[in-house]
């Protein structure tokens, strides 16, 4: 009758903590994003303004952190949902692979945009 419910992976605490930290970073950066893009100049954004901003390496660094945390936070969340609902081991491995591939693709496209534009 005795049953062991343990799954024995001890990474939960770290994942939980990183998810909270990334949430806070996202929150701050999101506010920053709204302020710079939508409130300065009464919210009128011109293509050239953005291009001007993107010449600064600091601005791009922040953009990069934003991208990284957003992708991590989003896909970590999706992974938790998979853990909630998908129980067969093989299925989990396959889904994990797909999630990682999509995440890296998005990261790559995002980085491409940031660095290509700044090199123009």
């Amino acid at each position: 009758m005795k049953k062991n419910f343990k799954e024995t992976s001890k990474t939960g605490a770290r994942v939980w903590l990183f998810q909270r930290i990334s949430a806070i970073i996202l929150f701050v950066l999101l506010i920053l994003h709204f302020v710079t893009y939508h409130f300065i100049n009464k919210g009128i954004i011109k293509y050239t303004d953005i291009m001007e901003k993107m010449k600064s390496p600091w601005f791009n660094l922040i953009q990069f952190i934003f991208l990284l945390t957003a992708v991590y936070h989003g896909f970590n969340g999706i992974w938790m949902m998979v853990e909630d609902y998908v129980h067969p081991k093989l299925m989990r491995i396959v889904l994990f692979g797909i999630i990682v591939i999509i995440a890296f693709c998005l990261l790559f496209i995002g980085m491409l945009t940031i660095f290509k534009v700044s090199n123009l």
């Binding site: 343990k6 001890k10 939960g12 605490a13 939980w16 853990e83 909630d84």
Partner: peptide, 13 residues
């Protein structure tokens, strides 16, 4: 040690 587990406390969302 018991509850710090994927099926332990971290399934609480």
């Amino acid at each position: 040690d018991m509850i710090n587990d994927r099926n332990g406390i971290w399934r609480c969302h």
